[in-house]
């Protein structure tokens, strides 16, 4: 067991990081906000933590907390103009936000190292740190699913007009989703920054936007299990497909297509729904919003 773990540790850590990014993405989608700003928050978190640790006296934990806070604040600021937009317009505006962050990383060379990126960042984050962070986020998302916040988000996502007519303040809950998505993105961005020794702007480009979205599409956007299933598939798939070498991307695309066509809700959501149906058929069930 231990041997298996050490052999696959890098894979496991990659899985935990993408799980964090996926929750940051899922939270906004769950609240009915079509934001793809997660990668922007991740970049802010990674660079801020890297900067604080290398250029000032910050330790690992304070740097991570500061990055979480600042990225959450970034989410708050972003929500002001973006809460007026809906659907695809929101997606395009948040994509623009990611581009702005990316360009800032290139242009603020004295602070960010420009295209060369930031190097020689001490590795302060270990697997068990990632595990703790993931556990905290899962607990929060689980709690939300059992609270009025989850109920409000589920209502807004399914029918905004109905939610408003039942007294749900759309603005308040959209803002909350932006802030949480920013904070979680910043948290895991900071952990990534303090994990890989080096960060460069191109890591946080369009490819990562697509990869984070893919996690949710594969796994599901409404349940706690969604991001876990999605991140697991994305972490394990390249390993399984290793013998296929140059056909890997083809396999990747084929699986994505198959999931969209046959499991449009995502693999994780589908499993949860099946389980819930079985449980409801037999006896008492837990009520906890969409997440379980």
């Amino acid at each position: 067991m231990m041997q298996f773990f050490t052999a696959n540790q890098a894979l496991f850590d990659f899985f935990l990081l993408s799980l964090g990014f996926a929750y940051s993405q899922q939270i906004v989608l769950r609240a009915g906000v079509f934001s793809i700003a997660t990668v922007g928050f991740v970049a802010i978190g990674a660079y801020l933590a890297g900067y604080l640790v290398t250029k000032s006296e910050f330790g690992g934990l304070p740097a991570i907390l500061a990055a979480t806070l600042v990225a959450g604040l970034g989410g708050l600021l972003l929500s002001v103009p973006l809460s007026r937009l809906r659907g695809v317009f929101q997606a395009i505006a948040t994509l623009a936000f990611v581009e702005i962050v990316l360009n800032a990383l290139y242009y603020l060379e004295p602070y960010t190292g420009g295209a060369m990126g930031m190097n020689r960042i001490p590795k302060l984050v270990e697997s068990w740190h990632l595990l703790i962070a993931v556990a905290i986020v899962i607990y929060v998302v689980w709690s939300i699913g059992r609270s009025g916040i989850g109920r409000a988000w589920d209502a807004i996502r399914q029918d905004e007009t109905v939610a408003a007519c039942l007294g749900v303040s759309i603005r308040k809950y959209h803002t909350l989703a932006f802030v949480l998505s920013g904070a979680i993105g910043g948290l895991f961005g900071a952990m990534q920054g303090l994990y890989f020794y080096t960060i460069t702007p191109e890591q946080f480009g369009f490819a990562m936007v697509v990869s984070v979205l893919t996690t949710i599409v594969l796994g599901g956007r409404a349940t706690l299990a969604g991001p876990i299933a999605g991140a697991l598939i994305l972490a394990v798939l390249p390993e399984i497909a290793r013998p296929l070498a140059e056909n890997r991307l083809f396999l990747h695309g084929a699986i994505l297509l198959a999931v969209i066509i046959f499991v449009p809700d995502g693999v994780g959501d589908l499993l949860v729904h099946k389980l819930r149906q079985r449980r409801n058929g037999t006896g008492r069930n837990m009520i906890g919003g969409e997440t379980s």
Binding site: V140, S147, A155
Partner: peptide, 25 residues
């Protein structure tokens, strides 16, 4: 969700599943 206007538990208690949020649910 129809009871939304009756909800009084704070956002923090909802995020952390504190007793007030769980009792309300």
């Amino acid at each position: 969700i129809g009871y939304h206007r009756r909800e009084t538990a704070s956002i923090l208690s909802g995020l952390l599943a504190l007793p007030s949020s769980r009792a309300e649910t």
